[in-house]
């Protein structure tokens, strides 16, 4: 793969654009040109069209996939929700010929064509399968030897495996993100709530306190079982929850520690030597200290 469409979604470009910038830095540096999907919309998020009408869900998702297809590229996204919504929609469209015909007919009215050639990937899949751990290892300026990471793959990259192009051997014990972190030189041990939901998304907007129960349990599991230097995730929703809710829990006195949170491509960009001001500068839990440790002279290769 030489080029890939970058589907940004909502949270990454509008809440955490430093994550977007980290993607725009690391993929070209690793040999994959990023193609912008001009005019894309929200995937549509679970709480919008999917909660109201299946056909509208499929048409809006189909339009986003068609934008990539018309540019002749596959699509990758760094938001787990977008990945789930688009993968599920593509699966339904391809499994049911009458749905595919419906999507094609509705898109034709807005001058879009959908054939189904474009594949939907998560950015973690492209890093792991297309680029590969060896190339990632060779790209590094700063190695993470001695660091301990608590990984958070998030939900929609793991289930349901039947709608995805790339899957874990056992999604209840995922290893892809662990291997991606280990490739940087860090340790990424198991903790008992590793595959648990962080409580973001619909749970957070419907019942904030219930949502906090889940994120608190996860943070305590990380802290007590492996005491990590940082949390690393490949889901932008998990990122916002682990960073934002952690600050609230600390202020309330419900936890007595903080752990800095990084999105995987942010960590990778830092390891490759990119400027933290561009790739990792927006967070609730301060990251200056960990970034200084990562990009320190003694770690330079």
């Amino acid at each position: 793969m030489e080029r890939c469409g970058l589907y940004l979604g909502c949270n990454i470009p509008l809440k955490a654009p430093d994550i977007e910038q980290s993607m725009r830095k690391v993929f070209p540096a690793l040999g994959i040109e990023i193609v912008d999907l001009d005019g894309f919309s929200c995937c549509p998020a679970w709480g919008t069209a999917p909660s109201f009408d299946i056909d509208t869900w499929l048409v809006v998702a189909g339009r986003n996939i068609a934008i990539a297809e018309m540019k002749g590229v596959d699509l990758m996204t760094g938001c787990n929700s977008c990945f789930g919504v688009l993968s599920e929609a593509k699966h339904m469209i391809e499994e049911h010929p009458e749905k595919k015909a419906m999507v094609q007919e509705k898109l034709a009215k807005i001058n879009k064509t959908y054939e189904g050639k474009t594949k939907v990937y998560h950015i973690a899949h492209i890093l792991y399968k297309e680029i590969g751990l060896e190339k990632i290892r060779k790209s590094m300026k700063y190695k993470l030897d001695g660091f301990k990471i608590a990984i958070q793959p998030g939900c929609h990259i793991l289930w349901p495996t039947k709608v995805m192009e790339v899957t874990e051997k056992n999604p209840f014990y995922p290893t892809m993100l662990k291997e991606l972190c280990e490739a940087l030189g860090a340790e990424a041990p198991y903790y008992s709530r590793l595959e648990y939901c962080c409580g973001m998304g619909a749970l957070r907007s419907t019942d904030q306190e219930k949502s906090f129960l889940l994120v608190k349990e996860k943070l305590l599991s990380m802290k007590e079982e492996i005491d990590p230097d940082m949390i690393v995730t490949t889901c932008s929703s998990c990122y916002l929850q682990l960073d934002g809710a952690q600050k609230i829990l600390k202020e309330r006195g419900e936890i007595d520690f903080t752990i800095p949170v990084l999105y995987y491509t942010q960590l990778l960009a830092l390891c490759m030597g990119f400027d933290a001001k561009e790739v990792a500068s927006i967070s609730e839990i301060p990251r200056e200290e960990i970034i200084e440790k990562i990009q320190s002279e003694e770690r330079a290769q």
Binding site: C10, S41, E278
Partner: peptide
């Protein structure tokens, strides 16, 4: 066109991106 929306132009420029993402 975005279910999660907020004006992010300042944040985006701060990290060296175009003020508006290439979306709707």
């Amino acid at each position: 066109g975005h279910a999660v929306y907020g004006d992010a132009s300042e944040l985006r420029q701060k990290v060296g991106l175009d003020p508006v993402p290439p979306s709707t």
